[in-house]
Design a protein around this nucleic acid. Sequence first.
DNA 1: CATGAATGAGCGTTCATTCAT
DNA 2: AATGAATGAACGCTCATTCAT
Lengths: 243, 243, 243, 243
Amino acid sequence: MEPLPQPSQATASPAVSGADARLRAQRWDDDGPRSRRGAETRARLVEAAKAVFEEKGFHEARISDVAERAGLTHSAFYHYFDSKEDILREVAAALDHTLNAGVDIILDPTSTATPHERVAAAMRTRLEAHRKEARIMGVIEQVSRHNEQIRVLWTQFYQQHVKEMAHSIEQLQQRGLADPALDPVIVTDALAVMTIRFAEQSLLQDDSGYDFDTAVEQITRIYINALQLREPKKPRRRRDDTG
Amino acid sequence: MEPLPQPSQATASPAVSGADARLRAQRWDDDGPRSRRGAETRARLVEAAKAVFEEKGFHEARISDVAERAGLTHSAFYHYFDSKEDILREVAAALDHTLNAGVDIILDPTSTATPHERVAAAMRTRLEAHRKEARIMGVIEQVSRHNEQIRVLWTQFYQQHVKEMAHSIEQLQQRGLADPALDPVIVTDALAVMTIRFAEQSLLQDDSGYDFDTAVEQITRIYINALQLREPKKPRRRRDDTG
Amino acid sequence: MEPLPQPSQATASPAVSGADARLRAQRWDDDGPRSRRGAETRARLVEAAKAVFEEKGFHEARISDVAERAGLTHSAFYHYFDSKEDILREVAAALDHTLNAGVDIILDPTSTATPHERVAAAMRTRLEAHRKEARIMGVIEQVSRHNEQIRVLWTQFYQQHVKEMAHSIEQLQQRGLADPALDPVIVTDALAVMTIRFAEQSLLQDDSGYDFDTAVEQITRIYINALQLREPKKPRRRRDDTG
Amino acid sequence: MEPLPQPSQATASPAVSGADARLRAQRWDDDGPRSRRGAETRARLVEAAKAVFEEKGFHEARISDVAERAGLTHSAFYHYFDSKEDILREVAAALDHTLNAGVDIILDPTSTATPHERVAAAMRTRLEAHRKEARIMGVIEQVSRHNEQIRVLWTQFYQQHVKEMAHSIEQLQQRGLADPALDPVIVTDALAVMTIRFAEQSLLQDDSGYDFDTAVEQITRIYINALQLREPKKPRRRRDDTG
DNA sequence: CATGAATGAGCGTTCATTCAT
DNA sequence: AATGAATGAACGCTCATTCAT
């Protein structure tokens, strides 16, 4: 009913960077870098860890792999992190926030685009982001299955995504623009899973997968069809967002 | 498996059960059990391995965990399998084939059910199977990322699933019963990913997830909507379509 | 001075076959084969063991290698032998006795050949025997360094060889046919070592070593030179072996 | 090594010490010690390995034996070497080079000693060296039979020895000082085998073997006799051949 | 006599982690 | 801050050996 919450960035960021901030703070107190140089080394380690995890997976990755990639010795690692899990948490926290962006476009009251166009734009944004981060997301999700702390991170992340999208669907249903028989939560979950995993499985950049534009188009169509998304009665005469 | 109307079934099945047979034969020749007792022990090991992998994941699982759960010594394991990968292959090969069943229902020419009913039945079958096997599937998929032999198994498995479903969609499109703008392969891929992962993530039996029936209903609806599945013009004489 | 001891075979055999007999008796009492078939299997095992030891060396050889080569299971081995050392003793005991033959030719009073010819004949016999058995001899000697029981066997074997030859040299020296400044024992030891090891190192049949005839000729020459072997004053007029 | 009159020395030496240098360099680059303390530990390990191999042989030697003897944990070993073979290579490379010294004395043009004296000196040098290193040489040779890399080391080592000596014999033959009927290569091989193995078998320090001086004298005599070594035409006043 | 199943001891190796410098 | 040395725990795997059949 209301003219949409806020730019979702606003909602999304706090959630993630909240966790982020907490983690950093924690580390800072413990054994974080106290000098400029230290901070740089630490950043290099996080970057290296991400790359190594993407390449070899979490379990196969050795701490020395990470350290070496950061141009450090194996034991220097322990100046900054307590364990592999520890640095993975940092990697997760540093993940590009654009992963959770794009959904709000669908309902953006200022937009003059058709719902179809909006969904397409949103899908493109998300798939692009996921395609880029799919590998590390896979790692995080994998680890989350057997590591409590990572699971929390992952869940927070995923739930936020789902919550936003569920809200969008509800809004559309209320305006009579989406199939009212759909359960917003379950459907969102299913479609989110589809998007994320499809990107992870079939859109990895080095994969001989589908043409990206075609994939975006088809996934978009699935969304629109699945939601039975209709054009608002009077598309663009005047603002008609109350349905 | 049941009588298979579609050709794809016919081609696909041998592929998988062929690999299956080969794997078993290989093992049998190599160091498989040569006595009744041995066969039982071997089976116990496979069962134990599945359970352990599901609980701890592949990397965290120790061979002794498997052996002990089967009531054996660590070293007895090596009478039957060469490595953890080896027994995982066996576990994968022994996976309930119902995982790949159900799709053909959709096109079954002998059926008098409406498309909606058919999809619902297929979805239920699949989701039930996946809900049961999701954990181990997750393990297999995880390992497949860094193990060639397992990847082959996984790919064969997944491809078969996708191929069958894509065929169904094409058939429906040709009969004018499904949205002709959809690319059967991409859409199948996306929807298959959705089903499998949704089951894996939100339907695990011990999970506080959704009500299963509701979930089936919603996923079914997504399918039907996504494909824009229509009733055939004159289904049978009369239909008292539930719905 | 005496007309030479006996045909060395006579001396040699008791020594070796004595050990042999003792070993066999021992085994027979313990767990030797009690049936015809058993004896054959046992023989097959010994044969197999020799071959395996020659191929892989003692330490690298596995009991299962031996058993499999004999067409048996690994555990059947234990019906006949207690350990690898055990069967190696048997292999050693069964070694071709011709290894220790040939030396007596040098002094054979019935021979009409020149000393040069006799040495040549003896060398050829020995080198041929050693060339054939060098591999297994090497194994035995190697094991003898750290296994008391095998060391006894090896020493017996080697000492007998040396003793006979030393005797020959003494005889020749007494007849004024060999350099009197040589210490029969040390020289024999050195020359025996040379012969055995040269065969082992440079005459192995599958080796791209020297031409066998040339090698025999050269080794013979070394012997003759080293001993400063001279023709007896009246070579072949009549038997003059009493000196 | 000393000033080398013969060309073979010149060519041969680089070959061996080249391999030597390469091996060391390789290790140094890989995982060699990078500190003073590390270098000492490494040296202690090599020393310990030599001792253990001599005592127990290569196969019987456990890595923990070596580590413990060096006062280290089992796993510390792996900071310096990759495997038992690896450290054996190091032990072999560190072998006293005097093993290959002495031969050149025989032809040394600056020497005023008689050939007999020269050979005696050379033999003494060699036998002393071999007596000291015989055990480890035996181990190396033993391992070389089934290990390619060690075989190369051993062969290089042995070939150099043989090549030098063969050159000496040829020179002597050309000057009419040695039996022209001898094949330099085969004879060298045989005599080298004799020397090395005799030392190994009968001169080990803890062995109840022969008196060392007597042994040297006898081996020397065998050499001189075998080569039919004559005094050069005007070496001393007149030939005073010990008959 | 022979087999297959099962065991237990032991070894090589890896790796995260700690410590002294 | 960073390094190299060192440790200890753990794991995979091999193999000789025993046992029931």
